[in-house]
């Protein structure tokens, strides 16, 4: 009797039955991700919203409600207006450059050549290297005293020592420098996106276009690009969100200088909210990103959906 009873493990069967239900299993599998988003993104986000509407500082952690007063203070600051402008230039400049580099990189890596696998692995490095390490290396390349870029330009006779660009000391060049570093960091991701997209384009479509007389440029911009646009748009959404909220490159390379020319929202929010202890104004600065990101993401997602339809 015991042996018969033991051979029918009912609870396991019931459990298996539950797991066989698609909606239950799906919920179980997605639960950790939802929990993660709720606890580590949702709660801090809601706290940031409340901080921005309160009088909370490290000196006086008071939750008293002040309405939109912090936002009014922030908007009236002329330096903030420049910071907002810088953030747009930094984000869209680096995404544009990253996409162009990514497209060219993908086209190069599609063609077979000796050592292609090694180069493909190497290209991922900028993405994989810790940003602090990479930025320090770039800082030396843009250094006013020891810039290897300037050394090369001088050695090639392009500029003289006195004409050598002061990469991080001239406002426009400093912005260009941080854009270049961010684009360098982003372009491996763009290559992966483009490679995934291009390899998914059916070969017979390309062959038919070639037979019809389409050259390299026409194939690329009238056939491949429209077909892979949804996946590129997804990559771009990621890139924009990550760049708009980034402070590490500016913090490590320029500290927002010279004269605030490279200060971006993430950096300004950190300096005000954490370093100076004015959490409420810091949160207000950081939350300025929200409507912009919301509009960009919604517009991109609508565009993607329309393309898919």
């Amino acid at each position: 009797m015991v042996a018969i009873a033991d051979s029918v493990p009912k609870p396991v069967a019931r459990f298996r039955f539950i797991l066989d239900r698609r909606n239950v299993l799906g919920s179980i599998m997605i639960a950790p991700a939802i929990l993660y988003v709720l606890l580590l993104v949702g709660v801090p986000f809601l706290m940031a919203v409340y901080y921005s509407l309160s009088a909370y500082t490290i000196y006086d952690p008071s939750w008293s409600f002040v309405g939109l007063a912090n936002f009014e203070d922030v908007v009236q600051d002329p330096v903030f207006q420049q910071t907002l402008y810088n953030t747009f230039i930094f984000t869209f400049g680096s995404q544009m450059l990253g996409l162009i580099l990514g497209k060219f990189g993908a086209l190069v890596l599609l063609r077979p050549f000796p050592g292609r696998k090694f180069v493909r692995a190497l290209v991922i490095l900028p993405w994989a290297v810790p940003i602090a390490l990479a930025t320090v290396a770039w800082q030396w390349m843009f250094d006013s005293l020891y810039s290897v870029i300037n050394w090369t330009l001088i050695a090639l006779g392009v500029v003289t020592r006195s004409q050598a660009p002061n990469w991080l000391g001239t406002p426009h060049l400093a912005m260009l420098s941080v854009i270049v570093v961010n684009a360098w960091r982003f372009f491996p991701f763009a290559i992966v996106i483009f490679l995934a997209g291009i390899t998914a384009v059916p070969q017979d479509v390309l062959d038919a276009a070639t037979v019809d007389g389409a050259g390299f440029w026409r194939r690329n911009y009238q056939i491949i690009m429209p077909m892979i646009l949804p996946i590129v748009a997804i990559g771009l959404v990621f890139g924009i969100v990550f760049t708009f909220t980034d402070l590490s490159i500016v913090f490590l390379m320029t500290m927002g200088g010279p004269v605030g020319a490279t200060s971006v929202l993430g950096f300004a929010g950190f300096q005000t909210g954490i370093v100076s202890g004015d959490v409420s104004h810091g949160a207000a600065i950081s939350l300025f990103m929200l409507p912009v990101l919301f509009i960009v993401v919604v517009a991109m997602l609508r565009f993607i959906r329309r393309r898919e339809v």
């Binding site: 250094d143 006013s144 005293l145 020891y146 002061n166 991080l168 000391g169 320029t254 010279p258």
Partner: peptide, 18 residues
């Protein structure tokens, strides 16, 4: 010289050391 516009805290040390 314009170099000073981009300096961090170690730059003047390096300038003197050079």
């Amino acid at each position: 010289t314009p170099e000073v516009l981009s300096w961090n805290d170690s730059s003047n040390n390096q300038y003197l050391a050079s």
